[in-house]
């Protein structure tokens, strides 16, 4: 499933190049949005759907890091820091 999702995201990036709409105005979606713009709005919506699938099926296993003392360490630690 992971490969399918990544494949679909790659396909979406390819389909984003809608050169076949380059010279088209019609059909006007809802009678006022030209097809070239409506298509790209559709790309945004499909992107959100595909990313929803990606967070469900392709979530990396090694990112759920438990709490550590590293960040709260004194300034001698790696993440030595100060607030401003």
């Amino acid at each position: 499933m992971r490969k399918v999702i990544w494949g679909l995201l790659f396909l979406l990036a390819v389909l984003h190049q809608d050169f076949w709409n380059w010279n088209r105005i019609d059909p006007l979606i809802f009678d006022f949005i030209p097809i070239g713009l409506a298509y790209q709005i559709g790309v945004s919506i499909v992107a959100a759907i595909l990313w929803a699938f990606a967070v469900h099926y392709c979530w990396p296993k090694d990112v759920d890091v438990p709490d550590s003392e590293a960040f709260d360490a004194t300034p001698q630690g790696v993440g030595r820091s100060a607030h401003v």
């Binding site: 979406l12 984003h16 070239g36 709005i41 790309v43 959100a48």
Partner: peptide, 16 residues
Amino acid sequence: IVVYGKMASWSGIIHA
């Protein structure tokens, strides 16, 4: 309309 595809829909895919 080209500005939407160039900046908004590309950003939607890439930012995510």
